[in-house]
Amino acid sequence: MIGVELRLMLRRRRVWLCWVLLCALPTLVAILLATTRLAPPPGRGGAFLSAVVSNGQIFPAAALALVIPIFLPITVAIVAGDTVAGEASAGTLRYLLVRPVGRVRLLWAKLISVAAFVLLAVLFVTLVSYVVGVLAFGFGPDASIGGAGAIPSLSGVELTPLDVVGRTAATVGYLALCMLALGAVGLFFSTLTDSPLAATLGVLAFVVASAALQPLDAAAAIEPYLPTSHWLAWIDLYRDPILWTNLREGVLVQLGYVVIAFGAAWANFSTKDVTT
């Protein structure tokens, strides 16, 4: 079942289009920065953007910071919103459940396919932006400690290539978890309706509501538990020493959303009347 869902996901044109568009935005930004050399002034603009012109190897971090607030959540909403509602609207859900496929197993397979989508999305953005960044801005000045390929951390300390690989892998994993939490919410919304568009819009409304509440003083008590509050905590992986406080909280909050949203999807879908 999981293999079938993964193959189905990889065969979908809209999935590939999402990945292409996600990689296109940072590529466009890199081209514009490389041609104009007009990086945002220090402290302004997206994270790492002011530094990429002197070292292209930092560009994956800048690219992730670019796609995280809007573009990545939109693609996750599209894919997750389509998981169950898409089958229902296409009339295939009833036939799928007639086969000896348990509903929980189906939900689990759908969640795994969403997880694969978000992991590949973050990975593609990282790899493509690394290549684009190095082509556009080079490897940066020769490093005295880590040799060629080292990049400066936010704290000024050099990160060796091995360090960079480890921290980037952790970044990819963390962001994939953040997006999986959103995907799980999308999966739940997808069990509530037969319209993939409604489920997608529901996920986007959820993101917008969270982002709107985040800066409010009146919402300070719930701010640490909002899904968007920890999306930028991965930046702490590029400090030296790494600041784990926000990352640890972020992982727990996102896991909480995955468990609760999947539980809600299970509670709703297990006894839902499937007519289409």
């Binding site: 220090p42 402290g43 302004r44 790492f48 953007l49 002011s50 002197s54 704290s155 400090r239």
Partner: peptide, 23 residues
């Protein structure tokens, strides 16, 4: 900060200011 960090060090009777944005 979300876009970097500004660090102040004090040692050996001196202060050092590292600003990632200003590099």
């Amino acid at each position: 900060t979300p876009a970097g960090e500004r660090d102040t060090y004090r040692r050996d009777g001196r202060e050092y200011l590292w600003d990632f944005g200003a590099n």
